[in-house]
Computed example of a mutant assay.
Amino acid sequence: MKKTAFFPGSFDPFTKGHADIVRRGLKLFDEVIIGIGTNSQKKRYFSLELMTQKIREAFHESENIRIISYDDLTANVAKEYGAKFLLRGLRNTTDFEYENTISQVNRHLIAELETVFLITSPELAPISSTIVRELHKYGAKVNDYLPYDLE
């Protein structure tokens, strides 16, 4: 039986930290679906089309990675794509508190949906999409934080 993990996020932008979680997730799962979700609480800085293109570039060599976009509950989308696992990265205890709550709700919605947490690699822990957006907004170079070239 194929083990599929769904890696959801707004990925605005998709960072080296996200890429690290996907690559490490491939050691556990047969397929990882990267789901670029619409967050009703956020307005995108980088377009959905640009992020989809850049993520495809970053994983062009990987046949067992799919990239989708969605506007629905994450649990519903995971079920639709046959994913029994949600893959999430944790940088710190704040991330854990937030992700744990979401994990419990997802499990309530779909009982067989398990969330698998991977601890971020130490050298990537300081990277966040929020910081990268802020740097980019003010003209700083951000390619060191991304698994693709933005400029």
Rank of each mutant, 00 (worst) to 15 (best):
K3F: 00
T4E: 05
A5H: 08
A5L: 07
F6P: 04
F7P: 12
P8I: 15
S10W: 01
D12K: 13
P13N: 00
P13R: 01
F14T: 03
T15G: 00
T15I: 01
K16V: 10
G17P: 13
G17A: 15
H18I: 15
H18Y: 03
D20K: 04
I21T: 12
I21Y: 08
R24Y: 11
L26P: 01
L26H: 02
F29N: 04
V32C: 14
I33R: 12
I36R: 05
G37L: 12
T38G: 02
N39M: 12
N39L: 10
N39D: 09
S40A: 10
Q41V: 11
K42Q: 11
K42P: 05
K43D: 10
R44Q: 13
F46K: 08
F46E: 13
T52W: 03
Q53P: 07
R56S: 13
A58R: 07
A58E: 08
F59P: 02
H60I: 07
S62A: 15
E63L: 14
I65N: 03
I65G: 05
I65D: 04
R66C: 02
D71K: 08
D72P: 02
T74D: 10
A75S: 09
A75D: 09
V77Q: 03
A78P: 06
A78D: 05
K79R: 10
K79S: 13
K79F: 02
K79T: 04
A83R: 02
K84V: 00
F85D: 05
L86Y: 00
L87K: 00
L90M: 06
R91F: 11
T93R: 07
F96H: 12
F96C: 12
E97W: 09
Y98F: 15
E99L: 09
N100L: 15
N100H: 15
T101F: 13
I102D: 13
S103L: 04
N106Y: 05
H108R: 04
L109E: 03
I110T: 11
A111E: 05
A111F: 01
A111L: 03
L113C: 03
V116Y: 04
V116L: 08
V116E: 10
F117G: 08
L118G: 06
I119K: 01
S121E: 13
L124E: 08
P126L: 14
I127G: 09
S128P: 13
S129K: 07
V132H: 00
L135K: 00
L135P: 01
H136S: 05
H136P: 01
H136W: 05
H136F: 12
Y138T: 07
G139T: 02
A140H: 09
K141S: 13
V142Y: 02
N143W: 01
D144K: 05
L146E: 07
L146A: 10
D149R: 09
D149Q: 14
E151I: 14
